[in-house]
Design a protein around this nucleic acid. Structure first.
Lengths: 115, 115
DNA sequence: AAACAATACTGTGTCTCACACACTATAGTC
DNA sequence: GACTATAGTGTGTGAGACACAGTATTGTTT
C-alpha cells in the first residue's frame, strides 16, 4: 500500500534510535529491555534493527557490552562509553540545528535574503 | 578519521532533506537553487544526494516536474504535489512525536513506570 | 506433562539510499 | 581562450533497515 509513505517516516526516525539508545544506556541495559523502552516511548523499533545496531555501535566503540550470567536467563548488558557520550552530545546539537533549520522553512519557503 | 562519527550525524539529517524539500517546493523551484537554499539554511546536502532524491520523489508522485526552456539555461522545475503535501504533513507530525520522545528520555533514562 | 507464547538473542540475505565518480553542456568572468 | 559557476544525467559502491530463519530458555495454559 502506502508502505512507501511509511518508508519516508521511517527515514525520519533513522538516527534517532541511535541517539535514544546512547542516552538510555548511560545506565546499563540489555537489548530486549531497551526495545520495550523505546516502544513505550513511542519510538517504534524493529528487533531486527536494534540488535544489529547495538552490535555495530559496540564495534565502533560507542557502547561496551558484558554478559550477565548470574541470573537464570543470560543477558548481554550494554553501556554507553565515554566516546558514546560525546557522540550523543554531538547528535543533540545536530538535532537542535535541524529543528531550527526546519522551523525557518515553514516561515518563508523560498527567499533571496542575503545571497 | 571520525568520518564514522560524521556518518551518525548524517543519519540524523536523513529524511529531513525530504521534508525540507517538500516544504520549499510548494513554490516551484529547480534542483540547483534548492541545493543552495538548503545549504543556506544549514541543511548540508550533497548535489549527488539531492538530484537522485528529487527524481525518486517525482517517481513516487510527491513532486511533479517540468522543463523550463524559455530562458537561456534550461532548468527542471519541481513542485510539491497534493500527495507531497500530505506526506509533508505526516512528516511534520512524526518530527513532533520524535522530539517529544527524545525529550522524555533526557529526563529519566530508564524507568519502570506503568509496565 | 505437553504445548505454546514470551523472552533474549545470533546470523544471513536483500533492497534502498547516500554519496563518489565520471560525464555533458552552457553562461559568465578574468 | 581558460577557468569557474551553473544545471543537470548516469552508474557504481558501501552501509544500514528489516525480513527471514534459527537457537535456547522461561513461564503459562490446558
Amino acid at each position: 500500500m502506502s508502505s512507501e509513505f511509511e518508508a519516508h517516516l521511517q527515514e525520519l526516525r533513522r538516527g534517532t534510535i541511535v541517539l535514544a539508545s546512547l542516552r538510555m544506556l548511560r545506565t546499563a541495559g540489555y537489548g530486549y529491555r531497551l526495545l520495550q523502552e523505546l516502544e513505550h516511548r513511542g519510538l517504534r523499533t524493529d528487533a531486527n534493527t536494534l540488535y544489529p545496531l547495538l552490535r555495530r555501535m559496540e564495534k565502533q566503540g560507542y557502547l561496551t557490552s558484558e554478559w550477565n550470567t548470574d541470573e537464570a536467563r543470560p543477558r548481554k548488558f550494554y553501556r554507553t562509553s565515554s566516546e558514546g557520550i560525546r557522540l550523543a552530545e554531538a547528535l543533540d546539537g545536530e538535532w537542535a540545528a535541524l529543528t531550527r533549520a526546519l522551523a525557518s522553512i515553514t516561515d518563508h519557503p523560498l527567499t533571496d535574503e542575503e545571497h
